[in-house]
């Protein structure tokens, strides 16, 4: 059976919980250090970071890490996360796990794709 996509393999023995704060809403939740920021939020039924593909492909869960150490667990689509983004802590919440208490601001959006008649889709 596969390890959950948002779980780091081989870390189950030393699981810790750390507090993650979403600064936009001041929502916070306890996230395991072996699961992604998004998996931790989603599993507890918390809201704040949009939940999309959960596989690093779509960008709706993009966040700016403001404080705290984290580690990339999975590849993220280069279409949405550039080298510059990575260097600046702009990452997909489904692909990084917290190493300590972390706070993030939400960048990703569920952009409306329905356009009004007569307007270009943009």
């Amino acid at each position: 059976m596969d390890v959950p996509a948002g779980t780091a393999p081989g870390k189950q023995g030393a699981v810790e919980h750390v507090v993650v704060t979403i600064t936009d809403t001041n929502e916070n939740y306890r996230c395991r250090t072996d699961e992604s920021l998004l998996t931790g939020m989603h599993r507890l039924g918390k809201r704040g970071i949009p939940v999309g593909c959960r596989g690093g492909g779509c960008s709706v869960c993009k966040v700016q890490v403001i404080a705290g150490a984290y580690e990339q667990m999975r590849p993220m689509s280069r279409e949405y996360v550039s080298e510059e983004d990575l260097a600046q802590g702009r990452v997909l919440a489904c692909c990084v796990r917290p190493l300590e208490e972390v706070s993030v601001a939400v960048i990703g959006k569920l952009h409306k794709s329905i356009t009004r008649p007569g307007q270009p889709a943009a």
Binding site: M1, D2, V3, P4, A5, G6, C53, R54, G55, G56
Partner: peptide
């Protein structure tokens, strides 16, 4: 069982009447 992220369903689409699940592969497709 395999921790596949499910998007929508199981349900039925009104459109085309298909019974459906939307989910994502390991890369978000």
């Amino acid at each position: 069982m395999n921790h596949v992220p499910v998007d929508i369903g199981p349900t039925r689409h009104g459109i085309t009447r298909g019974a459906t699940i939307y989910a994502f592969d390991r890369s978000g497709n």
